[in-house]
Amino acid sequence: MNKYIQLYEKSYETQRECAVSRIKQELINHKSKGFRFNKAINFLIKEFEEEDKSCVANEKHFSELNREFAGRGSTYEEEYEFLIIPNVMKPLFDSLSDKKITFSRYIQELAKRQAFTKVINLFRNDFLLYDMMYEHGQFDGYNNLEEFDIIKYPTNINQSAIFRELEQLVYPETRIEAPNKLEVDPKSNKPDDNNFFEIRKEYISVFESVNIYEHFTLGYLDFEKNQQEDFIKVFLKNPEDHNAKLAFECDTSQACYLLTRLNETCFKRLTQSAIGKSKKFISNNGHPFSQSTISRSLKIVSDTDKEAVDATIEFLKTATKVKKNT
């Protein structure tokens, strides 16, 4: 095996273990200080994001190498995908001027970025599982999870043995925390008042749940500028009947991809046009998303951001299955 591929794989596993250990310790620390789970995770994710911005491998100087690595799947079959490192990325690196670091150092930093991103995405995807661990105040020593880890569980996380074990410990009488619902305005006479974006029936109670709102504050919505009540109003009520708005903190391209995937999965009318006309979805620069902004942004969303959003969609699908069993 090529030495650079070996270096990447070894560095990736080391950094993955480091990220898992760090998340566990951070959660323990925040729990001891009395923070709610969603607040603790916002602290944690922001720390990771700041580190990612300062990572050497994330410098503009290496943007072409990063693009090649991100697109490796379109060049090589999965079992050979890391051949992109010696065959394409090494020659590109050698052609750069004023590199300041060695190729080996770059590979180590790239592995760190990839490992941390993967762990955070998996953590977001199975939010309910780690929320219950946090609530229970214990992160390992379970019958079905002797040592804390963040791995890829089955798509339906609620079917896993560790989820069922935690569910019985945390919610012995009810399978999942009861959703916080917003009262329907009895004075409203609009037949579509609670379904302007035509949310699909099975997702209504999901979007009313505090767990789902907290999930959206993990890297998408600005925790300081939003409230759960605003979240429910924007997604479930007529925009003309309230002043609530949702402020995003993630990149515009990722936010637009998220809204697009939500329309494909959870809604029938959360379209680019409807979003633009509503003026309820605010970008991190303070401007409402327009139809043209969404259309343009979808062309530049990164594979990493897509992976995070796709994990969220799977999380929402899982939530509907959990509620069917409550």
Score class of each variant (00 low, 15 high):
residue 3 K to H: 08
residue 4 Y to T: 11
residue 6 Q to G: 04
residue 6 Q to D: 14
residue 8 Y to R: 11
residue 8 Y to K: 10
residue 10 K to L: 14
residue 10 K to A: 14
residue 13 E to W: 07
residue 14 T to M: 12
residue 17 E to V: 08
residue 17 E to Y: 12
residue 18 C to K: 15
residue 20 V to M: 10
residue 23 I to T: 07
residue 27 L to S: 07
residue 29 N to E: 11
residue 29 N to Q: 08
residue 30 H to C: 09
residue 30 H to K: 11
residue 31 K to R: 14
residue 32 S to V: 00
residue 35 F to Y: 13
residue 38 N to H: 11
residue 44 L to V: 10
residue 44 L to R: 03
residue 46 K to W: 07
residue 46 K to M: 08
residue 47 E to A: 14
residue 54 S to C: 05
residue 57 A to L: 07
residue 58 N to V: 06
residue 58 N to G: 09
residue 58 N to E: 12
residue 60 K to V: 05
residue 63 S to W: 04
residue 71 G to P: 00
residue 72 R to Y: 09
residue 72 R to W: 11
residue 77 E to F: 14
residue 77 E to H: 12
residue 77 E to K: 15
residue 79 E to H: 15
residue 79 E to W: 11
residue 82 F to V: 06
residue 87 N to A: 09
residue 89 M to W: 03
residue 90 K to Q: 13
residue 94 D to M: 10
residue 94 D to V: 04
residue 96 L to Y: 09
residue 98 D to F: 06
residue 101 I to M: 13
residue 102 T to M: 12
residue 103 F to Y: 15
residue 106 Y to S: 03
residue 109 E to Y: 06
residue 113 R to V: 13
residue 113 R to E: 13
residue 114 Q to H: 13
residue 115 A to L: 06
residue 120 I to T: 09
residue 120 I to D: 02
residue 123 F to E: 02
residue 129 L to C: 05
residue 133 M to C: 08
residue 134 Y to W: 06
residue 142 Y to W: 14
residue 148 F to K: 10
residue 149 D to M: 12
residue 155 T to H: 08
residue 159 Q to C: 06
residue 160 S to G: 08
residue 161 A to L: 14
residue 163 F to I: 09
residue 165 E to N: 12
residue 174 T to D: 10
residue 176 I to E: 07
residue 178 A to L: 13
residue 181 K to M: 11
residue 182 L to I: 09
residue 182 L to N: 05
residue 183 E to Q: 10
residue 183 E to I: 08
residue 183 E to F: 07
residue 183 E to R: 08
residue 184 V to C: 01
residue 189 N to H: 05
residue 190 K to L: 10
residue 195 N to S: 08
residue 196 F to V: 01
residue 197 F to T: 03
residue 199 I to N: 02
residue 200 R to Q: 13
residue 201 K to G: 02
residue 201 K to W: 02
residue 211 N to M: 05
residue 213 Y to Q: 03
residue 213 Y to G: 03
residue 214 E to M: 02
residue 215 H to W: 06
residue 219 G to W: 05
residue 220 Y to F: 15
residue 221 L to C: 07
residue 221 L to F: 11
residue 222 D to G: 03
residue 229 E to Y: 02
residue 229 E to R: 06
residue 229 E to I: 07
residue 231 F to E: 01
residue 232 I to Y: 00
residue 233 K to I: 01
residue 235 F to I: 02
residue 236 L to V: 01
residue 237 K to E: 13
residue 238 N to W: 03
residue 242 H to T: 01
residue 248 F to G: 00
residue 249 E to A: 04
residue 250 C to H: 01
residue 252 T to F: 00
residue 253 S to L: 00
residue 255 A to F: 03
residue 259 L to Q: 04
residue 260 T to Y: 15
residue 261 R to L: 13
residue 270 L to Q: 13
residue 277 K to Q: 14
residue 280 K to F: 01
residue 280 K to D: 01
residue 280 K to W: 01
residue 282 I to F: 02
residue 282 I to R: 01
residue 293 T to L: 11
residue 297 S to H: 00
residue 300 I to M: 04
residue 301 V to P: 01
residue 302 S to G: 09
residue 308 A to K: 13
residue 313 I to G: 09
residue 313 I to E: 12
residue 319 A to V: 01
residue 320 T to G: 03
residue 320 T to Q: 02
residue 321 K to R: 10
residue 321 K to D: 13
residue 324 K to R: 09
